[in-house]
């Protein structure tokens, strides 16, 4: 993919593009927050709690987007053996897990005033909870080997297997949820978004994405350097040994 699989080229690209992503993040999230909190209407039904949506929904998108990036990068790493793809997958996991965590907690904080309970086995929240455990499994596996290379290979397979299972899990949780839908929970569902709310939501969504990209580039750069440090150390040991 236009030479990015070559670590040195990737480092140059990351140094070049990184600052622009950072700038975009500040502008997007700044304006998104300003409009979302101060310059957009409250919901006629939910009142001010709807403002939680500007954090809850983008983090849900990012949780799923980061997992897809992880799975695609893992597939590339498995098929074409590009170490940079492994680094992208390894770097993307903690970010995705962080966003999924934000999504779950803000979901609970939004659910309490609206549905009356901190945790509701709503289909989307439950699927995000399972996604969070898929992230934990991935990170635990990638860190469970002494040899980083071996960890990357094993977790790459897990990411692809996990990604294949996500639609099945989503389908079964939705089916399970409609079956056991407790009558008391009024399914508020996604409020039909009027433009005044859509703008801050999209601003925050894109802002979260550029934030994710900035941090991902940093993490990939540090993974590349870590690999080089390991190689130099090995060379030194063999050199002197």
């Amino acid at each position: 993919m236009f030479g990015l699989q070559n670590p040195t080229k990737f480092l140059k690209f990351a140094k070049l593009v990184g600052p622009w992503f950072a700038l975009a993040t500040v502008l997007l999230i700044g304006s998104g927050l300003w409009i979302g909190l101060f310059a957009s209407p409250a919901d006629y039904q939910q009142g001010e709690t709807v403002r939680i949506m500007y954090v809850h929904v983008p983090s849900a998108w990012m949780g799923m987007f980061a997992y897809t990036v992880m799975a695609v990068a893992s597939a590339i790493a498995l098929v074409w053996k590009h170490p940079v793809a492994d680094h992208v997958a390894k770097g993307s996991a903690p970010l995705g897990a962080g966003f999924t965590l934000i999504c779950l907690v803000t979901g609970a904080l939004w659910g309490k005033p609206m549905w009356g309970a901190w945790w509701v086995w709503d289909a989307r929240l439950t699927s995000m909870l399972i996604l969070f455990f898929l992230y934990l499994g991935y990170m635990a596996l990638s860190g469970a080997f002494d040899n980083a290379e071996r960890g990357a290979k094993a977790s790459a397979i897990l990411a692809v297997v996990g990604w294949v299972n996500v639609p099945i899990i989503k389908f079964s949780v939705d089916w399970w949820n409609t079956l056991h839908q407790p009558a008391s929970v009024t399914k508020a569902g996604m409020p039909s978004i009027d433009p005044a709310m859509l703008i801050p939501l999209l601003l925050m969504g894109v802002g979260f994405t550029t934030f994710y990209a900035t941090l991902l580039l940093w993490r990939v750069r540090s993974e590349i350097l870590q690999t080089r440090i390991r190689n130099i150390r090995l060379a030194q040991i063999h050199g002197e040994g």
Partner: peptide, 20 residues
């Protein structure tokens, strides 16, 4: 006061900020 929901809106922004 966030229309009385301050204790829900601000913690969720606070937590999102902290995690990020």
């Amino acid at each position: 006061s966030m229309g009385g929901y301050a204790s829900f809106v601000w913690p969720s922004y606070g937590l999102a900020f902290l995690v990020m």
